[in-house]
């Protein structure tokens, strides 16, 4: 049998070309109802995804603050102290608390989604998602403990 792929003729289907043409021409006049800009208000599952995506805005904001911190450190001790004072100001503290909460939310949701992206079978059935999620939490807690130990010791 010849490979059908190799016999692929052009889209112009000989004498019947007009048929496809008319179908195509008619297409764009019809309405296409979509989910709209407020799709994320269409139910809790959409809403949580929206929040999850929104977290990145706060994390980006925090990164800007963090880059500022490194810049201040580079300039000198006085600039660093001024900058730290700024970070402790009430509005920025609020932003940082929010960022921490969002980061936690983001982390937890992504950890819980990991079994979706990685599917490991044992025989014919998938292994329990806990096998994939638990190690992530263990590593996370481990690394966090080390960081905390470095800061406070």
């Amino acid at each position: 049998m010849t490979d059908p792929e190799k016999r692929r003729p052009s889209h112009n289907l000989h004498s019947n070309w007009w048929l496809n043409h008319t179908r195509y021409r008619q297409r764009d006049t019809r309405p296409r109802p979509d989910l709209g800009a407020t799709w994320w208000l269409r139910g809790s599952s959409y809403f949580f995804v929206f929040i999850r995506e929104l977290t990145s805005v706060f994390i980006a904001l925090y990164l800007i603050l963090f880059i500022g911190l490194i810049a201040a450190l580079y300039i000198g001790a006085e600039a660093y102290n001024d900058y730290m004072e700024l970070l402790w100001s009430p509005p920025l503290t609020v932003i940082q608390v929010f960022t921490l909460l969002f980061a936690l939310f983001h982390t937890v949701t992504w950890f819980n989604l990991t079994p979706k992206a990685v599917r490991i079978l044992k025989g014919e059935s998938p292994i329990s998602p806990l096998f994939l999620i638990t190690p992530l939490y263990i590593v996370w807690l481990g690394v966090s403990s080390i960081v905390l130990w470095m800061i406070f010791s």
Binding site: R30, P31, R32, P33, D34, L35
Partner: peptide
């Protein structure tokens, strides 16, 4: 009852 979203309605 509405047609499926994200498709053109015929």
């Amino acid at each position: 009852v509405e047609p499926l979203a994200n498709f053109r309605v015929e």
